[in-house]
Every structure is written in structure tokens, then in C-alpha cells.
Computed example of a mutant assay.
Amino acid sequence: MNAPAPMLEIRGLTAGYGDATVLHDVSLSVPHGHAVALLGPNGAGKTTLLRVVSGLLAQRQGEVLLDGERITAAKPYQRARRGLCHIPEGHGIYPSLTVRENLVLHTWRKDERTAIARAVEHFPVLGQKLGRRAGELSGGQQQMLAVVRGYVADPRLVLVDEVSMGLAPNVVDQIFEFLNVIVRAGTSLLLVEQYVNRALEAADGVVILTKGTVVFDGAPSAIADDVFEHYLGSATVLR
């Protein structure tokens, strides 16, 4: 019996900006209901890869498949309708809209009342701010609002880029607890994260990029000390 197709599969991906090539023949996969950490030094191509997967940047070569279906030519909104949710670095909210309006925008798969209740269940502080403009929230509250899209929209795959950037450790704890909840519920997760130890704790698999090339793809426990030191030695550790 053949193994089921992974939720996300990237085959031979090459991409970049203008004359610059950032990703070179990158291949990786994210299994159903698993979390994969995408790690590497600054400039390795992590954000570029997420942008290609979500359709914000066209690839030059290669394929992107979601649950076995080629989405290489699909536009970003079409990928979203197939269950892909991209939470970019820098919160990814609509600051001029209220918290409630931000949540409602992502509830096309279910009724609004249920979606808001689910969001507030995980981040109660949002329930106290439903009428406030999202741009008036603290940085941590804005990030909570951004990541809760990974729940209210019922995505099958969530791409998260630097979720902890600039946040206090206690807020980071809450957000990672939430990410663990959605993975346990069956959502697949591809996570770019500056705090390597938090990413390794949350992930079932790890892919390390450097200079746009995959140099490691395996379980967190399989990362040898010399590989860690060479490619991730300067990465940030959250205490």
C-alpha cells in the first residue's frame, strides 16, 4: 500500500527576486498533522520559501503540491480556499479594522459567532478588545490576533514566519501553546522561528536552509552537534 501524500510537498524549487536566485532546487515535505521547523541563518531563504508556497512569489522551477494536488499555478486566494493559511512576519493583521472585523474576515468556512468564540477561548484578552481597532493593540495582542487565523479559518496547512519576533517570553509561551493545540487537532504547520529551541520543541521534523539550499532534513533528535553549531550556532535562544 502506498503511503499517503504529505500535506505539503515542495519539489525542486528554484526562486528569487530580479536577477538574484535565493532558493536553489529545494525539496521538502510536511506530513499531515505534523509540525516542521524551517531553520537557518538570516538570508537563507526561509521567508522566500513561504512566499512561494503561499503564491506571493512565483517560482522559476519546481512544483508545490497541497495534499497531493499541484497548486504551482494557483493564485494566493485560490491556495487559501484550498486550506493554506500564511501568517507573515510583522503580525499580518488589518490595523484599521476592529478585532472583530479581523476575525470575521477569516470565517468563510464557519459562522462568525462560533469563530469568534473559538478565538476568544484561546486568547481571552481578544474578547475584551473586539471593538478596538487592531492597530491599537499591544504587539503581543496583535500577534495573537494574527496567529488565531490558523484556527478560525479551519486551514489544513499553516505557514508561520517569525511568530515570536519582538514579543515578551510569556506571550511567546501562549502563542506556542496555541500552535501546539492546532497541530494536535490535525493541522499541518511549517514554522520559521528565530528561537531555535522553541522551534525544536514544537516540531516533529526540521529542515535547515543555508544559502537557499537544504543542508539537513530529519528529526530534531538527529541533528548532530557539528551541524547545529555550523548552521545554527548564532541563532537566538529564548530563556
Rank of each mutant, 00 (worst) to 15 (best):
Q174G: 13
E89I: 07
G150H: 08
R109I: 13
T107N: 11
T114D: 14
Y94Q: 01
V160K: 09
A117H: 09
F178G: 03
A119K: 04
E136L: 12
P95L: 13
G139H: 01
Y94G: 00
S164Q: 08
L137Y: 03
G135D: 13
R109Y: 10
P169E: 11
E121F: 07
L179I: 08
V104C: 02
I116E: 04
E121R: 10
P88C: 01
R149A: 07
G135A: 12
I93P: 03
E136K: 12
N102H: 04
G166D: 08
T107F: 00
R156S: 13
E101Q: 15
A134N: 03
Q128K: 15
S138Y: 08
V172Y: 05
N180P: 00
I116F: 10
P169N: 12
G150M: 10
M165I: 10
T114S: 15
L179S: 05
E101H: 05
V120I: 15
G92W: 09
H91F: 14
E121Y: 03
R149Y: 04
V147Q: 09
D161T: 12
L97M: 15
G92E: 11
L167K: 09
R149S: 07
Y151G: 00
L167N: 03
V158D: 14
E89P: 13
M144H: 07
V125W: 01
K129R: 15
P88A: 04
R118A: 14
T107K: 05
Y94V: 12
K129W: 00
T114A: 15
I116R: 06
A153G: 00
A153V: 06
L126T: 10
D154V: 00
G131V: 05
N102P: 06
A168R: 03
G135H: 04
A115F: 10
V125M: 09
T114L: 13
G166N: 09
I87V: 15
L157W: 12
E101G: 07
V104K: 04
N170C: 02
V172F: 06
I175V: 14
P124E: 07
V160Y: 09
A117G: 02
P88S: 02
L167T: 08
G127L: 11
V163S: 14
R156L: 12
S138T: 07
H106A: 15
A168N: 03
N170S: 14
T107W: 02
L103G: 03
G131C: 04
E177K: 11
A115C: 03
G131S: 14
L145G: 02
A115H: 05
L157R: 11
I93T: 01
A117C: 01
L126D: 08
H91A: 04
M144I: 07
V147G: 10
E112R: 15
Y94M: 12
A153S: 15
P155H: 05
L105F: 08
R109S: 15
S164I: 05
V99M: 11
N102Y: 04
I87T: 08
V172Q: 03
Q128A: 14
V125F: 02
R149G: 10
S96W: 07
A115G: 15
L105T: 06
I93G: 02
G90V: 06
A168Y: 01
V104E: 15
V152Q: 01
G135I: 09
T114V: 11
Q141K: 09
I93W: 01
H122P: 00
T107V: 01
L145M: 07
R113G: 00
R133E: 14
Y151V: 11
L126Y: 02
